[in-house]
Amino acid sequence: MSEAPMIAIEGLSKTYASGFTALKNVSLTIDRGEIFALLGPNGAGKTTLISIVCGLARASGGRVTVGGHDVVTDYRAARSLIGLVPQELTTDAFETVFDTTSFSRGLFGKPPNPAYIEKVLTDLSLIDKRDSRIMTLSGGMKRRVLIAKALSHEPAVLFLDEPTAGVDVELRRDMWRVVRQLRDAGTTIILTTHYLEEAEEMADRIGVINRGELMLVEEKTTLMRRLGGKRLTIELAEPVAAVPDMLAPYGFEISADGRKLVHSYDASGEGSAIAPILAALAGTGLAVKDLGTEESTLEEIFVGLVGGKS
């Protein structure tokens, strides 16, 4: 059992009643205990994918299992394993924080356990608000309430659909901390986000989805290495008209104002040319103002991937 993937999605497709096809033959497996980040622009199909796994939408084709249980035919077993934090802030208004969290636990078939609920509220810094009505909370706190509800029944899989949208830096850090704690406790986590730094920071694996197609799934480190070029930028004190002859063999580009020389290279490559470049640079006798290297961020990788298609 522990060998089987936590989530197996096979050939999933979804065409809405409007005729719009939001998912096209998506296949994906997610292992136990991993943090998987699903990235994609607005309307890519992230929420649709999550909705089908969680039972909010019906698939038009394909099959999904969670913990080995089919989400349609064996929905009770499958859904018992899942906690969902939806993208939209939808909460009751008149219930208290404690009551709404206890309600969720019951809904998922677990006997009452006030001590556990208190622990969840404490972890999410909500314990001071336990008897407050939800409508009196700020947006960020409501977001935490949704997370508390999702965690109330001790799910093995947690879906976070853009958990940090519209959330301040501090709360975002808090959430990352909670997510790490959950991962350490063995929870499988699938999150969607537009904050690429979030995926970079949190995820073990990253999937990129665009226009309903899963374009790539990769270990984060591999992805960074595979697509992550580096750049060496030489800033000159005085502008030059052209790339000096001595640097020409290394493939430099020159900025429009002639003050910057940029060399792109593959960080994973063995024979990086940095040392010979520096030697050649000294040979040119140019006055160097500054020198720096930078890695491409996931954002650039992402824009490169998605940009090519749209």
Binding site: C54, A77, A78, L84, P86, T91, F108
Partner: peptide
Amino acid sequence: FVGTIYELLSAPVS
């Protein structure tokens, strides 16, 4: 109407 139905639909409730 308010959207909280998501929880019921995602719950193991027949």
